[in-house]
Design a protein around this nucleic acid. Sequence first.
DNA 1: TCTGGGGTCCTATGCCTT
DNA 2: TCTGAAGGCATAGGACCC
Length: 419
Amino acid sequence: MFALVDCNNFYVSCERVFDPTLNGKPVVVLSNNDGCAISRSNEAKKLGIPMGAPAFKYEKVFRNNNVKIFSSNFPLYGDMSSRVMNILSSYTPNIEIYSIDEAFLEFKGFQEYDLEVYCKEIQKRVLKWTGIPISIGIAPTKALAKVANRISKKFPKKTKGVYMIKSDKNRIKALKWLEIENVWGIGFRHSKKLRSFEINNAYDFVSLNDDWVRKQMSVVGLRLKKELEGESVLYLEENRSPKKAIATTRSFEGTITDFEKIKERISTFAVCCAEKLRLQKSTCNAVYVFVRSNKFQKNKPQYRNGILMTIPFATNSNMVISKYATEGLKKIFRPGFNYKKSGVIVMAINSIKNYQTNLFENENPKHRKLMKTIDYIQKKDGQSKIKLASQDLKKRWKMKQERLSNLYTTKINDIIEVK
DNA sequence: TCTGGGGTCCTATGCCTT
DNA sequence: TCTGAAGGCATAGGACCC
C-alpha cells in the first residue's frame, strides 16, 4: 500500500507556525518578485483567490478582506520541509520525497497494521512536533493515493485528513467523483481534449480503450490508467538520482531592451548555476540560454528564443559557464524587443568523481582552485562579494520582496525569543 | 506600471553510422 | 562503390508536476 502525505497549504502553514495570530485569517504567500499567489489559506481560497492569481489584480480583494500577505521565504519553507520529512521517515523505511510539501510512503509488510490508525498517528506527531497540518491518502497505487489524498482534503470533517481506498467499491466511487482535470497527470491540454470526447471524470477515463489512450496520451497516459484501475506500475523512487538539469531563471522587474543589461543578468544566472553545480559536486557539459519578451503584452511584438551551447570539457567554473552563456546570448539576442524574462540552464551534468578529461581541450587548471577559494569566501561572509566583471557590479537590480517574514529557523538573529 | 521558478519524462525528427 | 534498412544519438518541443 502507498500513502501520499501532503502538507496543507504548506507555505501559509509555515508562516502560521511562527505567528499563530494568523490562524483563522486569510493568508496568502506570493511568488518571487511578489508576482502571484502560490499558497493560500482556506480562508483566502474562500474569498475566491485562485492559485497563481496575479497580486496586482487582487490588491483590492486583499485590502478589503484584510488578507495577510507574505513574500516567499524559501529558506524557511525548505527547513520546515526537511523537519516534516524526517518525521515521516521514522514511520517506514520506504519513502519518496516528491516535492517540498509532499511525500509518498510505501508500506511493505504492514499487513498486521491498521494503516488508517497508523497514518492518524503520523498526522498527529507531525502537527505536534512541527506545527504543520498534513493530509494523508492511502491506496494500493500511487495515483490512487493521490485521489485518496484529495478526498481527505475535500471532506475534512468526515475524514479528519486521513482517507483510505480500501475496496473496489471505494475506488469506483472515488473515480466517479473526481473531475477529469483534477486527475494527477492529466493537465490542461489533455483534459480539454478528453472533455470534448465526453470523458468528464476519472471513471470515464478508465473506461476508455487502452490503445486509444496509448495513442492519444503516450505511455504516460496508459500508465496512469493502469494505476487508476488499481494496478501498481509507478514505483517508489526512493533514491532520487542527481539532478539532470539545474536552472536559474528570472522575470525582470520591468522590461529590458538593452543587450548589455541582459548580459549582466545572464552572467549572474550562469554564476548561480555554477555555484549550485559545485554544491552538489557536479560538472556540466552544456549550457542553455533563453530570452523572451512579455507574453502578457499581446499588442507588442513577441520574441522568444533559446540556444544550447555545448562545452568541450566538463566544468563548474563561474568563468567558463558565464562565457558560454553570454556567447549564446549574443546568438539569440535581437534588438527591438522588450525582454521580460531570461535564464540559464546547465545540462549534461556529471558527478565530479567521474571527471573526464578531454584529449584536445581542457579547463584551465587554475579555475578549480579559484572556485574553491571563491566558495570559501562566500560561505564565510554569507553573501556574494566576489563577482565576475560581466556581472552587475553594483547590484542595481533586486527581487521585489516587500513582505518577507523572518528566517525563524535558519538565521540566529531571527530566532523567536520566549519571554 | 505590476502575471514565479525549478524540475521530469516522452516523442518526433534529422543526422550519422553500421 | 552504391543503396536501403535499422539503430544510436542529439535536439527541440510538448505535456505534466509542485
